[in-house]
């Protein structure tokens, strides 16, 4: 993992930790690149809407989680990992310069 990916993973871990604590009162969830949103974190699709808002607040409109997921098949969304989101955020930030 390069330094930029590490930094984005740290940001996303913070956002998810906050979301899990606010919505489910959880404060001891381990998150890494292989963590899946559905099976590991047990996030519902409405939680992903909240995450989309948190990502936009953090990175601005160039990170569009809704568009990213809208381009995927349903099964791909179910299998989505934190690592895939990290890669997408890094690419979006690069594209925006």
């Amino acid at each position: 993992m390069n330094p930029q990916e590490q930094a984005v993973l740290a940001d996303i871990t913070d956002l998810l930790t906050k979301l899990l604590e606010d919505e489910y009162g959880l404060d001891d969830v381990e998150i890494d690149m292989a963590t899946t949103f559905n099976r590991d974190l047990e996030l519902e699709s409405i939680d992903l809407v909240t995450l989309a808002g948190l990502l936009e607040e953090k990175y601005g409109r160039q990170v569009n989680f809704a568009e990213f997921l809208a381009g995927m098949e349903f099964d791909e969304i179910i299998e989505l990992t934190v690592g895939r989101l990290v890669e997408y955020v890094v690419q979006s930030l690069k594209a925006a310069g």
Binding site: E44, S45, I46, L48, V49, A52, N64, A66, E67, L69, A70, I77
Partner: peptide, 16 residues
């Protein structure tokens, strides 16, 4: 169901 069924499907292309 919830609004998420739209948020990650037809809403982004409709906005576009």
């Amino acid at each position: 169901d919830s609004l998420a069924s739209y948020y990650f499907t037809i809403a982004p292309p409709f906005a576009a």
